[in-house]
């Protein structure tokens, strides 16, 4: 079976800074892969390349065996890549349901005369929130929400399409302990439904409790890529800090 996503030799320069130096990564169907590394290791840059925000300076991407080049987040989204950004990418001035549907709003009307179908969007948002077991209200403005509720909005957004890959940038960093378990459970649900999840996280327990595999980046290069069962939090910590060169 062809891997879902293959990245080979992905390199990214920002001026003189080399954020990524030839990274190779392969993702299988339905896998949960932990992507770890210290601040500045290149995790966010890698995510933004897969999500179509940046074009790589060099290197190739293949999705389902076919070479792809994302010129914009829209291209990536249409190819089946969804992202939960670290800052969640929410508009504070809009309601939860409008944030979920931003960029792919439901409309009704005749021909080219189309109007937002707020009711349908709110109804779908309510379903998604029910799946997530969150107390988020579709009509509430995001600016009035707690960190966990905001996270729920951002995660609900990825569930709108049937994505192939969901990239999650630190989804558990800013929410309460109780909600961490809920978010992790949701990630398992996504994976069971056949979606591939990439979990970018600083939290060792999260990665070790749900990931199949862990990839460690350090200063723009991949220093480890192995099944979670074949490593330990101690080894991964060593790899992140550089105490262990590579594994």
């Amino acid at each position: 079976m062809t891997p879902l996503l293959e990245l080979s030799g992905i390199t990214k320069h920002f001026g003189a800074i080399e954020a990524l130096a030839g990274v190779d990564i392969t993702l299988g169907h339905g896998e949960i892969v932990g992507l770890m590394g210290d601040n500045g290791a290149g995790k966010s840059t890698l995510v933004k390349i897969v999500a179509g925000n940046f074009a790589p300076s060099a290197g190739d991407m293949r999705l389902g065996g076919r070479p792809v080049r994302f010129g914009s987040p829209l291209d990536a989204r249409e190819a089946g890549v969804e992202v939960v950004y670290q800052d969640l990418a929410l508009c504070d001035n809009l309601s939860a349901s409008l944030n979920i549907f931003l960029g792919r709003e439901l409309t009704r009307g005749i021909g080219p005369l189309r109007f937002l179908d707020r009711r349908a969007m709110a109804a779908r948002a309510r379903e998604l929130f029910a799946e997530l077991k969150t107390n988020t209200v579709p009509g509430d403005l995001v600016k009035s929400m707690s960190g966990g509720q905001r996270q729920a909005v951002a995660i609900a957004r990825t569930r709108l399409a049937e994505p192939k890959i969901v990239l999650m940038d630190e989804p558990t960093a800013a929410i309460s302990v109780r909600q961490v378990a809920e978010v992790l459970e949701l990630i398992r649900t996504l994976s069971r439904a056949g979606h591939t999840v990439v979990l970018i996280s600083h939290r060792m327990p999260d990665v070790f409790s749900i990931c199949d595999r862990v990839i460690v980046l350090r200063r723009g290069t991949k220093v480890a890529d192995k099944p979670v069962s074949a490593t330990s939090p101690e080894e991964v910590t060593g790899l992140i800090t550089g105490a262990i060169e590579a594994a």
Binding site: P73, Y85, A89, L90, N93, L102, R104
Partner: peptide
């Protein structure tokens, strides 16, 4: 949030 709007295509 212009950045968020851009990220959402």
């Amino acid at each position: 949030n212009a950045a968020a709007a851009t990220l959402n295509t």
